[in-house]
Design a protein around this nucleic acid. Structure first.
Length: 557
RNA sequence: GGCCCGUUGGAGAAGUGGUUUAACUCACCAGCCUUUCACGCUGGCAUACAUGGGUUCGAAUCCCGUACGGGUCGCCA
């Protein structure tokens, strides 16, 4: 048989058969209703927010019924491969706790269905293709790039669908002898799938999210093996998801249009078609228009953007899940500290149109998340963050002042109404740095000194601060302390309450709040701060007085 | 352009023919609380069912057309 000769000539190294592969990669034993899903990134850059979304859902679905979630590295595009991308993809995935049950893990592989890196699977692809050549389901194509360019131009002129199909599929009509001759002559070739489809026919394909979709049959003779000997995505999908026994393919909506092709591929090989869930894309609003998040233009497209700002990773997942399932937020409200993978994600509860990425909502979840951590947990994470960012100054500061940090982070933390003022970890030190003298003094020089209300004379402020220094009562609680402040204010003819002041502004210089503000500026160099009594207690009377003295000194100039 | 998917207030989104004068969450605004901020509470904003036909006693919900948005048409994935 001539075709066998051709196949052997093209793939002399292959002696295995399809049934060998079937035996090597047997069907998996699974619980009823369990899914085998996968995360299949190509190492062309950092983890994309959309990929994380897909991975989260794949993992959730697999976990539900003791299925399998595995990672396969799709590294067949050698031109676009980025050094180190595979490792960072994997480490980011691990950071998010989306640990695979099996697959490509960087330095090693786990599982019986490997190799899990496509560049290591050449023998498998070649075995399948060899059989396809024998069965006349595929053929070598000798068209050059310029041949294809010309074809496209011609088709554009003729106003027909561009592509290699039907009467345009020149090499599909080559006889086996002709092909053999070219191969023997050492001509370059790719391998194409011989489609039997008819574009006029409609087929029904099924998607877990969208239901049945009526769509034209594929009739394109797509490339399945590239000139470099590596498979294209479509063909790798066929071989890998069959022999890795994937039962549910979760991928972005952009793949929906190639589904007819994939259906034909599986059918032609008599492989069971996996189920598909084409997930909505995450978009962003750009100049009033909605568009897919783009790696190149949108900083929030790369998960690393949020990692570098120190967003709690749980919050990112929480946000993504809130996009994924409408009933998630209800669950979350009572499970704020529960592993998100415990949430029963369901495809039925997913909306079909791509959501706009909303940083504000992410910030909300992030604040909520940090607010329910203990001070120890916050510090632990702050330390991890500063180490990850190579912030030696902050790292050392934390190491040298652990107990102090804990006190600071404990202000108004805990209880039913915790303070919610940290959104991400890069934010924290900025907000609490006034607690450190080396930060406070320059801060007061640059900022604080200018914050005093011009309504009051410097002399008055100095006198008030001086009085506060000696008359404030610490150690007996917030109430007593604030009473002592009121007493000072009152002695200087400030109204006790805003209401009294507003009723008779002519009678007073100001109100207690004004005095509190002066003190606050002198102590924290800002008009805002957490509860002042707590701040003062943490700083200690000695340092408070030093700061007041400093403010007085500066005001006197 | 062909094909496919989608379309409920600024964002996410509930709703599957009558309980809808359309939930809920974020954002925003106001008031309360309050020594500031944050929290919390109360209220509000937002002319929200793309549009035109049809089916029906009745449509956000079913059908058809149109518009708009997105995706895809590679030896990229």
């Amino acid at each position: 048989m001539k075709r066998r000769e051709l196949a052997h000539k093209m793939f002399p190294d292959i002696s295995d058969t399809l049934s060998d592969l079937e035996q090597t990669y047997p069907k998996r034993y699974l619980e009823r209703g369990a899914y085998v899903t996968r995360f299949a990134p190509s190492p062309t850059g950092f983890l994309h927010t959309g990929s994380l979304f897909t991975a989260l859902i794949s993992k959730s679905v697999a976990m539900r019924k003791n299925g399998v979630f595995f990672v396969r590295l799709e590294d067949t595009d050698t031109k676009r491969e980025v050094e180190g991308a595979a490792d960072s993809l994997l480490s980011d995935l691990a950071l998010f706790g989306l640990n695979p049950d099996e697959g490509f893990l960087g330095t090693e592989e786990k599982g019986l269905y490997g190799p899990y890196r496509q560049s290591d699977r050449a023998a498998i692809y070649r075995t399948v293709i060899k059989q396809m050549i024998v069965d006349n389901k595929a053929y070598p194509c000798f068209c050059s790039n310029s041949d294809l360019d010309n074809l496209r131009k011609r088709q554009e002129k003729e106003k027909v669908v561009p592509g290699y199909y039907g009467r345009y599929a020149k090499c599909s009509t080559l006889t086996v002898d002709q092909a053999l001759k070219k191969v023997n002559a050492g001509e370059d070739y790719v391998v194409r799938f011989r489609s039997k489809g008819n574009h006029q026919n409609k087929i029904v394909v099924s998607d877990l999210l969208r239901g049945d979709i009526e769509i034209a049959e594929n009739d394109h003779h797509i490339v399945i093996l590239k000139g470099d000997g590596l498979p294209t995505y479509h063909f790798a999908h066929l071989c890998d998801d069959h022999f890795m026994r994937t039962t549910l393919v979760t991928r972005g909506e952009e793949w929906l249009s190639s589904l007819p092709l994939h259906v034909e591929l599986f059918k032609s090989m008599n492989f069971d078609l996996p189920k598909y869930a084409h997930l909505p894309l995450i978009n962003k609003l750009d100049d009033g228009k909605k568009r897919k998040l783009s790696k190149r233009y949108d900083e929030e497209a790369a998960v690393s953007y949020f990692i570098n700002l120190g967003y709690p990773l749980e919050a990112i997942l929480t946000y993504l899940m809130s996009i994924a399932n409408y009933n998630f937020e209800d669950w979350w409200r009572v499970n704020k500290r529960t592993d998100i993978l415990k949430f029963p994600f369901q495809f039925e509860n997913m909306s079909l149109d791509g959501a706009l990425f909303d940083v504000e909502k992410l910030n909300f979840f992030a604040r909520e998340f940090i607010a329910v951590l203990t001070a120890e947990e916050v510090l632990e994470r702050l330390r991890d963050f500063s180490e990850a960012q190579n912030d030696e100054k902050l790292t050392k500061l934390i190491t040298d002042n652990e107990a102090y940090f804990i006190k600071i982070l404990n202000i108004e933390r805990g209880g039913l109404k915790p303070r919610k003022d940290f959104t991400y970890f890069a934010d924290i030190y900025e907000q609490i740095k006034f607690f450190f003298d080396e930060e406070y003094y320059p801060l007061f020089d640059n900022v604080g000194i200018n914050l005093f209300n011009p309504k009051f004379s410097k002399e008055l402020i100095i006198n008030l601060l001086t009085s506060l220094k000696t008359n404030l009562v610490y150690r007996r609680g917030n109430e007593v302390w604030f009473d002592s402040l009121k007493k000072v204010a009152s002695a200087f003819n400030f109204a006790l309450t805003g209401r009294e002041y507003r009723a008779n502004p002519a009678l007073y210089l100001g109100m207690t709040g004004d005095v509190a503000e002066m003190l606050r500026i002198a102590i924290v160099s800002s008009k805002q701060s957490p509860n002042m009594y707590e701040v003062l207690t943490i700083l200690g009377k000695k340092r408070v007085n030093e700061r007041i003295d400093y403010a007085i000194e500066k005001l006197s100039k």
